[in-house]
Lab assay of single mutants.
Amino acid sequence: GQVNVNNTTYTFPTPKLAKEFAQKAAKKYNLTVHVSGNTVTVK
């Protein structure tokens, strides 16, 4: 799974890890998680 945070893309071996990372990043920066297919964007 891929996660985009502040124009930086992070790649994870599983969608589960990507989702967990996205949720932590969203909480940390007070942003929202947007899911589109296999790509998760935090903005």
Rank of each mutant, 00 (worst) to 15 (best):
G1S: 13
G1W: 07
G1I: 14
G1C: 10
G1L: 11
G1N: 12
Q2R: 05
Q2A: 12
Q2F: 12
Q2W: 14
Q2I: 12
Q2M: 12
Q2H: 13
Q2S: 12
Q2D: 11
V3W: 08
V3R: 03
V3S: 12
V3Y: 07
N4V: 11
N4F: 08
N4L: 11
N4I: 13
N4T: 11
N4R: 05
N4Y: 06
V5T: 11
V5S: 11
V5H: 13
V5D: 11
N6W: 15
N6P: 10
N6A: 12
N7S: 15
N7F: 15
N7E: 15
N7A: 14
N7D: 11
N7Q: 15
T8F: 14
T8I: 14
T8L: 10
T8M: 11
T8V: 14
T8N: 08
T8Y: 15
T8H: 13
T9M: 09
T9Q: 06
T9N: 05
T9L: 07
Y10G: 00
Y10A: 01
Y10L: 06
T11N: 06
T11L: 06
T11Q: 06
T11Y: 13
T11F: 10
T11M: 07
F12I: 01
F12R: 00
F12N: 00
F12Q: 01
P13H: 07
P13W: 05
P13F: 05
T14F: 03
T14N: 11
T14E: 03
T14A: 02
T14W: 03
T14Y: 03
P15K: 11
P15W: 07
P15H: 15
P15S: 11
P15D: 10
P15V: 13
P15F: 10
P15I: 11
K16G: 09
K16Q: 14
K16H: 10
K16W: 08
K16S: 10
K16P: 03
K16L: 10
K16T: 10
K16D: 13
L17S: 06
L17E: 12
L17R: 07
L17F: 04
L17M: 12
L17A: 13
L17I: 07
A18I: 01
A18R: 00
A18K: 00
A18V: 02
A18F: 01
A18S: 01
A18C: 01
K19W: 15
K19F: 11
K19H: 11
K19E: 11
K19V: 08
K19M: 14
K19L: 14
K19I: 10
E20M: 12
E20Y: 10
E20K: 12
E20A: 14
F21Q: 01
F21R: 00
F21N: 01
A22T: 01
A22N: 01
A22H: 01
A22P: 00
A22V: 02
A22L: 02
A22Y: 02
A22R: 01
Q23V: 11
Q23D: 13
Q23N: 09
Q23A: 13
Q23H: 09
Q23E: 15
Q23Y: 13
K24Y: 15
K24H: 12
K24E: 08
K24G: 04
K24V: 12
K24P: 00
K24F: 13
A25P: 00
A25F: 15
A25E: 04
A25R: 03
A25V: 15
A25H: 07
A26G: 05
A26E: 10
A26R: 14
A26M: 13
A26Q: 12
A26V: 11
A26H: 09
A26L: 10
K27M: 09
K27S: 10
K27V: 07
K27I: 09
K27P: 02
K28P: 02
K28W: 14
K28Y: 14
K28T: 05
K28S: 05
K28Q: 09
K28F: 11
K28R: 09
Y29Q: 06
Y29I: 04
Y29H: 08
N30D: 05
N30C: 04
N30T: 04
N30A: 06
N30L: 06
N30I: 03
N30K: 08
N30G: 15
L31D: 03
L31Y: 07
L31I: 10
L31Q: 05
T32I: 14
T32S: 09
T32N: 08
T32R: 06
T32C: 06
T32F: 06
T32H: 08
T32M: 08
T32D: 09
V33F: 08
V33N: 00
V33P: 03
V33Q: 00
V33Y: 07
V33W: 03
V33S: 02
V33H: 01
H34V: 15
H34Y: 14
H34R: 06
H34D: 06
H34S: 13
H34E: 13
V35T: 04
V35K: 02
V35L: 09
V35R: 05
V35W: 07
V35H: 04
V35E: 02
V35C: 03
V35F: 03
S36P: 00
S36C: 04
S36I: 11
S36Y: 09
S36Q: 11
S36H: 11
G37N: 05
G37H: 05
G37W: 03
G37A: 04
N38Q: 05
N38T: 08
N38I: 06
N38Y: 04
N38F: 04
N38H: 06
N38S: 08
N38D: 03
N38V: 09
T39H: 06
T39D: 03
T39V: 12
T39E: 05
V40W: 03
V40E: 00
V40I: 03
V40A: 04
V40K: 00
V40T: 01
T41E: 05
T41S: 05
T41H: 07
T41D: 03
T41I: 11
T41Q: 06
V42P: 00
V42G: 00
V42D: 00
V42I: 15
V42F: 07
V42A: 02
V42E: 00
V42Q: 01
K43P: 06
K43Q: 14
K43N: 10
